[in-house]
Design a protein around this nucleic acid. Structure first.
Length: 202
DNA sequence: CGTTCGATGCACT
DNA sequence: GTGCATCGAACGT
């Protein structure tokens, strides 16, 4: 039995959502086909005082979703080639979100692999292991077919949603956020211990 | 196992 | 013009 997470799940302090979102299942249904994976790694980005949060400069056209109601998807384009997906948290007007960094693939692995292979350069012919299909924030958006069209999507009702499949991680580990140049001192990255995550495993 | 580096488009100053 | 919430190839150990 699986249940889509309600707005009340996201309408909480972001660090609580950060821990609780591990083990939940990110789902995207495209043309009737579901792809889904359990969230095994995430990071919190909290408020204008967090220098690594996109809300640090104050409201701009791009970061508008962060200021919106909890339960929205915030998708943005980075490094000229990658889409990254966040779940917006906290009350409307409080800019904060959780970045989804890695999934353990659960449904639609064939579709995931097809999307990953299609977007890779033709010269790269190395195989992709199942557990690498959704490993890394840029990789998982490709695997699930997430791009700017899903920006500001409603995660509580859409074809893009986060569900509870009853998975309960036995152990979580907090560490510093990775891949950022500022705000690295905060332990706002959360991983499911023993699962394949991006960067250094734990 | 590790580190380095180029590709690539756009938001923001 | 500058700097990214990245990826994977290439190469060193």
């Amino acid at each position: 039995m699986s249940v889509v997470l309600p707005v009340s799940f996201y309408d909480r302090p972001t660090l609580e959502v950060l821990d609780d979102i591990i083990g939940k299942v990110l789902v995207h249904e495209v043309r009737g086909v579901r792809t889904a994976g359990a969230i095994v790694e995430a990071e919190a980005y909290v408020g204008e005082s967090d220098p690594a949060c996109h809300a640090a400069p104050g409201p701009t056209p791009r970061n508008q979703p962060l200021y919106g109601p909890p339960g929205l998807a915030y998708v943005y384009f980075n490094y000229g080639m990658h889409h990254l997906v966040n779940a917006v948290t906290e009350a409307k007007g409080a800019p904060a979100a959780v970045l989804i960094r890695a999934l353990e693939p659960l449904e639609g692995l064939g579709g995931m692999r097809r999307r990953r292979l299609r977007q890779r350069a033709p010269e790269s012919s190395r195989a992709i292991k199942d557990h690498d299909l959704c490993r890394g924030p840029g990789n998982l958006t490709v695997a699930l077919g997430i791009d700017l069209r899903q920006n500001m999507a409603d995660l509580t009702s859409g074809p893009l949603a986060i569900e509870d499949h009853g998975l309960r991680p036995d152990r979580l580990a907090r560490s510093r956020r990775i891949g950022i140049r500022v705000g690295t001192e905060r332990d706002w990255r959360c991983c499911w211990v023993g699962k394949k995550v991006s960067g250094r495993g734990m």
